[in-house]
Computed example of a mutant assay.
Amino acid sequence: MNDRTPTPPSNVKSQSQPAKQQARRVSMQVRPTAPILPPSNIQGNALMVVIAIMAFLACLTLGAVSMIRATAASWQSQISREVTIQIKPDDNVNMDQALTRAKDLALSFVGTKSGQIVDEAATARLLEPWLGTGLDIKDLPVPRLVIITIDESHPPDFAAMRDLLSTQIPQATLDDHRNWVDKLVSMARTTVLIGFGVLILVFTAMILTVIFATRGALSGNRHIIEVLHFVGAESQFVAREFQKHFLKISLKGAGAGGFMAAAFFAFASFLQDNTLATPQTDQATALFGRFEIGLSGYMGIFATMIVIALLTTLTARLTVISAIYDIDQIRSDPSRSSGLPPD
């Protein structure tokens, strides 16, 4: 009996061959695809700087509008909670009695809280910026004031109070500051409209810049896009690649601009807190209020950054789709690609 090694059946060999090919295919590493656009180039860096500048201006405008609105609201609240009674000097009138009488008449109305007579020393301090120190109020025909604090939610009848004061004390006049309040409200609304106008201009300039930058990137990579189209790549795929590219650029630029704006307001607030005793800071505080935008202001800056990034991404996507559509139109019309008039 001969010792012979048994040969495997042919069907076993045919079954092992696909298994080896499958194992070889699994062991192969798939090479990652490179992006259509390079992650960093001169055009991308320039666009990032432009977006950072636009984001800084937009966030600065938003913070300034928020700060001015808060200051105007504070002024309006301070003015609307008080009314002033002015009594002109007269030789036939006892000023002290007239001041006390005017205060009592005003406090007799529902909606008034308290009254304060501005004494001679306080009146002299009010006139120091114009007339200097060492004044004798009795020697000057200076009106005297009575300040009445009112309930803002339920104010008194100012018309009836004005008529009663003019009847009982002819030299007295009532100033309810309605004119100043109306001017402040009008100023705040105008400031808000101007701020929104500046924001619209900034966003428009940014969108136009992104359109030009996207078309420039398309022009530089047009041959790649045509090759991708030729091998069957859809326009949505190319648009997503450009969208990712410009999203990264816009996030970096908007983040840098928003951070600079937030740092500016934080530094201005810190500087104001440490120089409160100086006359310059006091005047700036009285005119512009506190250089603080609060949590809502910083949230607004963050929201502006997100809006800028989304606008940039959406603009890039729409621009790419429109440019690819033009490429398809040129390819489908030979006369346009050759420059010849159509038959």
Rank of each mutant, 00 (worst) to 15 (best):
S250D: 02
N274H: 12
K183P: 00
I321T: 12
A256H: 04
I207A: 15
T304Q: 10
P334E: 08
A263W: 05
S186L: 09
N2S: 09
N11M: 07
L218A: 07
I330S: 10
A58P: 03
P32N: 08
T7Q: 13
F270I: 04
G294W: 05
F288H: 07
L60P: 02
H177D: 06
T33M: 10
T133K: 14
L164I: 08
I53Y: 01
H223F: 09
R317D: 09
R125Q: 15
V26P: 02
V202G: 05
I147S: 08
N94Q: 08
M54G: 11
V307P: 04
V238N: 11
R178E: 12
R317Y: 05
T7V: 14
L37P: 05
G197H: 03
E128Y: 00
K113L: 12
F302E: 06
R215P: 00
D3G: 00
S235Y: 00
T173C: 02
V118K: 10
G44M: 12
A303Q: 05
T204Y: 03
D91F: 00
A72K: 12
L145Y: 07
F158K: 07
G216W: 00
K248V: 09
G44S: 15
A122R: 11
A323Y: 07
V227Q: 04
P89N: 02
I293W: 00
Q21W: 03
V202F: 07
A106E: 04
I42F: 10
P170M: 13
I87W: 06
T71A: 11
V181N: 06
A239I: 03
T214F: 05
T312I: 01
A121L: 09
V227M: 14
V49Q: 06
T312A: 15
F288A: 15
G289R: 10
S114D: 13
P156K: 03
D333L: 07
W75Y: 11
I321W: 02
A23E: 15
S74K: 14
F158R: 04
V49Y: 07
R125G: 05
